[in-house]
Design a protein around this nucleic acid. Structure first.
Length: 585
RNA sequence: GCGAGUGUAGCACAAUGGAUAGUGUAGUGGCCUCCGAAGCCAUUGAUCCGGGUUCGACUCCCGGCACUCGCACCA
């Protein structure tokens, strides 16, 4: 009886072994197992078609031969058939479903099964990265939420993950800001809302510098002083950053994000000289209009569109710090892979960055981590334009979360007026914030997405509320019966699943492994979201069709087992997406 | 101008080259004496256009059209 976590992996191994024993192909056979339409079973292998093509033989006899050569324990666990032009269909037998569910009864069991994928690897993930002295806005939402979900998936699948918040804490904006702080800082306002005061000062300094060249000169002078380590300017700079970080921390707490390191651009200030020197020595960069730039002659576009690594005034920019950052991540963290969870509009920059880094590392004989730009689309408001407030400003993340929570609170109060006030507030926070996260995680990150309150807080459809409701319903079954969840003594009496709804739910549960693998391989959390939504739907159907608390002990036990595993997988999955769950709502 | 991306029901989204393109919402019709109706069941409705590759194409290639985004001292 096969109890592997990943049934697809198990089937692929079995098919490759079978292929070898029938002498079908000398190692080149790709089984191509995937989940299939439930009408045709649970899993389907379609690799025979390609293999038959290459061998110049009809596919069906090859498929029949393969099926005949499959190992006995797989045949015992699955119903296997050949269909259509040469698909091999696998249906998990009810007894196998039961055995799989019994052997995956805890978070630890699931994690043990999943953790083979990235064992021993170190992944550095660059996420969120807001600018200091400004509040986080909706533009930081996707990087933070998608980035965190990816980190959790990688950790779950065995990787050592370093979450790095690469703050924008060293840009040219500091000249204007420090200029304004020195002249216009209002301590009373600072005490009330520190980040708001720095925002006000930045706007003030920026406007003044734009209006008056003399101010612009003074602002530049402040920047030079700061970069030269002037004590007064450095103190102001530190104060701004500390304020910003404590403000960001409030948001990260609500979203459930904990960074392993926060190494902003300023951290690389003393590490960029080496970049200028090495790129120049290695002949990778050249001078153009007084700036140090990199061209890529072999590239159709970057042969003429340069990447500037040092401005003509000698200052660093984000290309220089990004290069220094790659080196640091390779040398200090020994990263096998570095992910940049950044808006897709920066695609050109990362393409140039990766090209340059590859040449540079090759020249120096360094081991280059795999680097990937995990890009995502823009959050759009009405009129299909990037989401803004009525006044044209960015929507603050804090305001967004607060409004979501308020809407959720109104809803909870309407649906569950008898809950204590404090509990309704707590539920509203979980549902509200979860809805914002889930709206972002439930669709393909690559596409832009249209933001509407109706869609997000909606009771129906593929939303956080629907999933949390399913969790609450399962929990209430155990609560009302005073039963422990997933207790072996309760489940021991379970017999094999029989009703269509039981079987459908069990078949969905064992495909958790596939959802994890797919979401992790593609770095697309929406595959997991979609799976969880379908699982919740399957549970709701089961819950309506089959009563759980019945008199027959065996029936009751197997249905309680289904409830316990549904709860385990829903909560594990939602946890991987970064959402919290509720006892009731 | 050069380049990248996106075009799937009224609207919002899925589909790891596989069988009859899934789901939500909106519409229509049912289901609370029974473990939570924030739920369930049924039903109407779509691949931008034209070629090509393939046993098989929303998916890959070529050419159009439409929209979005990026292209030197901001990040």
């Amino acid at each position: 009886m096969h109890l592997a976590f990943d049934l697809i992996g198990e089937l692929e191994l079995a098919l490759v072994a079978a292929a070898a024993s029938t002498g079908l192909e000398a190692g080149a056979f790709e089984p191509g197992v995937r989940t299939s339409d439930p009408r045709h079973g649970d899993f389907q292998a379609n690799g025979v078609l390609a293999a038959a093509k290459r061998a110049g033989k009809p596919p069906r006899p090859i498929a029949e031969a393969l099926v005949g050569a499959i190992s006995p324990d797989i045949r015992e666990s699955f119903d296997i058939s050949v269909a259509g032009p040469g698909f091999i269909n696998f249906s998990v037998k009810p007894a196998t479903l039961l055995a799989w569910l019994k052997s995956h009864a805890s978070l630890e069991a699931l994690q043990t099964g999943a953790s083979a994928a990235h064992k021993g690897e170190t992944w550095v993930v660059d996420l969120s990265s807001p600018n200091a002295a400004k509040q986080m806005h909706v533009g930081h939402l996707r990087s933070s939420v998608i980035g965190e979900a990816i980190c959790r998936l990688l950790t779950f699948t065995g990787a050592k993950v370093v979450r790095d918040n690469h703050l924008g804490d060293w840009g040219t904006q500091y000249g204007k800001l420090i200029w304004a702080v020195k002249r216009h800082l209002d301590e009373a306002k600072l005490a009330l809302g520190p980040i708001e005061e720095f925002e006000r000062l930045y706007k003030l300094g920026s406007a003044a510098a734009d209006a008056d060249p003399a101010v612009m000169e003074e602002a530049r002078a402040e920047l030079v002083k700061l970069q030269a380590g002037d004590p007064e300017d450095t103190a102001i700079w530190k104060r701004i950053n500390e304020t910003s970080l404590s403000e960001f921390a409030k948001i990260y707490d609500r979203l459930g994000i904990k960074f392993d390191v926060i190494l902003g651009e300023s951290f690389y200030n003393d590490k960029v000289e080496r970049i200028y020197k090495e790129l120049s020595e290695d002949g990778i960069s050249e001078m153009s209009d007084g700036a140090q730039v990199v061209f890529h002659p072999e590239h159709p576009r970057f042969k003429t569109q340069p990447m500037m690594v040092r401005k003509s005034d000698g200052a660093a920019n984000y290309a220089s710090t990004d290069l220094a950052t790659i080196l640091y991540r390779a040398e200090h963290f020994h990263a096998d892979c570095v992910l940049y969870v950044v808006d897709k509009r920066q695609g050109d920059h990362f393409e140039q960055l990766f090209l340059t880094a590859r040449k540079w590392f090759e020249k120096r004989g360094r081991r280059l981590p795999r680097m990937e730009h995990v890009d995502f689309g823009t959050v759009l408001g009405d009129n299909n334009k990037p989401l803004k407030t009525r006044t044209g400003d960015n929507v603050r993340l804090k305001d967004l979360l607060d409004e979501a929570v308020e809407r959720a609170y109104a809803l909870v109060t309407e649906r569950s007026p008898d809950f204590p006030e404090a509990e309704r507030r707590m539920i509203a926070e979980v549902v509200g914030v979860g809805s914002v996260q889930y709206a972002d995680l439930s669709q393909n990150r690559a596409s832009d997405y249209l933001f509407t309150w109706e869609k997000m807080i909606s009771l129906d459809g593929n939303t956080a509320a629907y999933l949390l409701y399913a969790v609450a319903r399962v929990r209430s079954i155990f609560r009302r019966q005073n039963l422990g969840i997933g207790e072996a003594s309760t489940e021991a009496a379970a017999d094999v699943f029989q009703t269509p709804a039981e079987i459908a739910l069990a078949r969905r549960l064992v495909k958790f492994a596939d959802a994890i693998r797919l979401a992790t391989e593609t770095l697309c959390p929406h595959f997991l979201s979609l799976y969880l939504y379908e699982l919740a739907g399957e549970f709701s159907t089961f819950y309506t069709a089959d009563k759980v608390i019945v008199d027959e002990p065996a029936v009751r036990a197997r249905r309680l087992l289904l409830c316990a595993r549904t709860l385990l997988i829903l909560e594990t999955g939602l946890g991987l997406l970064g959402l919290r769950t509720l006892e009731r709502m």
